[in-house]
Write a protein that binds this DNA or RNA. Structure first.
Lengths: 223, 223
DNA sequence: CGGACCTGTAATGTATACAATAGCCTTTCC
DNA sequence: GGAAAGGCTATTGTATACATTACAGGTCCG
C-alpha cells in the first residue's frame, strides 16, 4: 500500500487496537480522512482492507463500525488460531533456517527477562512474544496461511492494555516457547505442532480467565 | 458492495475463473474499467477485494496480475481446506437444522443423478456439489471461517472446465456425502470431521492426478 | 560496444466534485 | 396527540482530473 492509504490503515487500526474506538463505534469516512490528513479515497481503501481482516463490520446499509465480537466469535477465533498456528509450526519445522531458530531463542530469552523481574514487563513481553510467533509464521512459507493468521492473531489485543499478565501464565508461555525451539532443532513437525497447539489452547484459557475477571461474559469452550 | 463495484468484481472474477485471463495476466485498471463500463474507482475496489481473496497478486511496484499458484501453493491450499472444512463439519454437526440436512440430502441425490448417467453431467455435479458444501459452511455459523474457506475453495476451478471427471472419483464423492449426512443426523462432530477430512484429501489426490495427466507438474504432498 | 543515466510514456495513487441513497426531523393530516 | 409522509441532511458511491511513480527506450559517455 502506498503512503496515504497506509497512513489511514495504520491510523484506524491503531485506534481500534488501542481501544480509542471501542466495539460498535461508527467509522465515518470523512471524519477519518480529516483526522489523518488524507482524502476519502485512501481511507476507503483502508476500511475495505480492515473489513477483510475482520477489524470492521459493515451494516446492510454500507456503514462501517468497529467489529463487535461475541464470546463464540472469540472462542472460534482461538480454535482457528490453534489449528492454523499448529499447522504453521509443522510446516516451519521442515523449512526453518538455523538463523531463524537462533532469532527465536533470542526473542524468548528476552521474554524470560521480561517475565522474570520484580514485575512483569508487559510491553517487552508482548513485543518479543509477537516477534517469536512471527518467525514461525514466516518460516512456514505460506502467504495464504500468513494472511489467515493475521485475521485471528490480533483479535484479543484490546484487553492486553487493560490487565496485568498473570505471572504463572507468562512463565509457562516462556517454557513452551523453549520446547518449540527444541522441536525445531530436531525438525520434528508433529512435536512442533503439538507444542504450538497446546500453547495456543493454554493462552485461550488464560485470556478467558482474564476476560471473566474483567466482569464480562467469558467465551464458551464448546465441542 | 454496490452496483458498479460489484459489476467489476464479478467481471474480473469471471474472466479469471473461466480462464479467459490466465495466470500471470496483467490487470490494468483503465482497461478493465472500459471493459465493464465503469470508472477506475470501483475497479480498484474490486481488485483489492480479489487480492484479499488471493485471486490476484500485486508486484512490488503495485501492478496487479492474475495469481500464479505453485504446486506447493496448491498442496498447501488443499491442506488448509482440509483443516478448515473438517472444522466446519464438526461445528455444523452441533448446529445444523434438520431442514438443512434434508437440503443436503436433496443436493446429494442430484449429485447421484449427475454421476449415474451414461456420461457424467459435469455442470450439474459441480453445481450441486458446491451447494452441498455451502450448506455445511453456513451451518458452521462462523463468518470468519466462511471467509477463510472462500479463499481456498474456488482455487482449482480453472481446471474443471478442461477435464472430464473420473467416474470413480465422483461416485466416491457421492458416497462420502451420504456418510456425512449420516454423521449429521447422529450429530457426531468427530465423525463428521473425519468424513470431511477424508473427503477433501481424496479430492486433492483426484485433482492432483488430473493435474499430472494434463501434462503439468503435480502438487507435492509433503510432510 | 556496453552500461548507465535521462527522458518520455504509461501505469497507479490521490484528491475533489458530483450523484445517489439512507436516516432523521419536521410537518401535516386524521 | 400520534402516525405517516415528505423533504432536508448526512453519508457513502462513482467519476474524473491531477500527481506521482515505474518502466522502456534511446542517447551519451567511458
Amino acid at each position: 500500500m502506498s503512503k496515504a492509504a497506509d497512513t489511514a490503515y495504520r491510523y484506524v487500526r491503531g485506534e481500534i487496537l488501542s481501544g480509542a474506538l471501542g466495539p460498535g463505534a461508527p467509522l465515518r469516512e470523512e471524519a477519518l480522512a480529516v483526522a489523518c490528513g488524507v482524502s476519502r479515497t485512501p481511507v476507503r481503501e483502508a476500511l475495505r482492507r480492515l473489513e477483510a481482516e475482520r477489524f470492521i463490520q459493515r451494516s446492510e446499509t454500507q456503514r462501517s463500525y468497529v467489529a463487535t465480537l461475541s464470546p463464540d466469535d472469540i472462542a472460534e477465533g482461538f480454535a482457528l488460531r490453534t489449528m492454523l498456528e499448529g499447522h504453521a509450526a509443522a510446516r516451519a519445522a521442515a523449512r526453518i533456517a538455523p538463523e531463524q531458530i537462533e532469532a527465536m531463542a533470542a526473542h524468548n530469552a528476552a521474554v524470560g527477562v521480561a517475565v522474570g523481574g520484580a514485575t512483569v514487563d508487559t510491553a517487552s513481553f508482548v513485543a518479543h512474544n509477537r516477534a517469536f510467533h512471527q518467525i514461525v509464521t514466516d518460516a512456514a512459507g505460506s502467504e495464504r496461511l500468513a494472511a489467515m493468521l493475521a485475521t485471528v492473531v490480533e483479535q484479543p489485543i484490546v484487553l492486553r492494555t487493560a490487565r496485568h499478565y498473570d505471572r504463572e501464565a507468562v512463565t509457562r508461555s516462556h517454557a513452551e516457547h523453549d520446547e518449540l525451539i527444541l522441536a525445531f532443532r530436531r525438525r520434528d513437525a508433529e512435536w512442533a505442532r503439538a507444542v504450538m497447539t497446546a500453547h495456543i489452547r493454554r493462552a485461550f484459557h488464560a485470556y478467558d480467565d482474564a476476560f471473566r475477571q474483567a466482569g464480562l461474559t467469558g467465551a464458551r469452550t464448546e465441542e
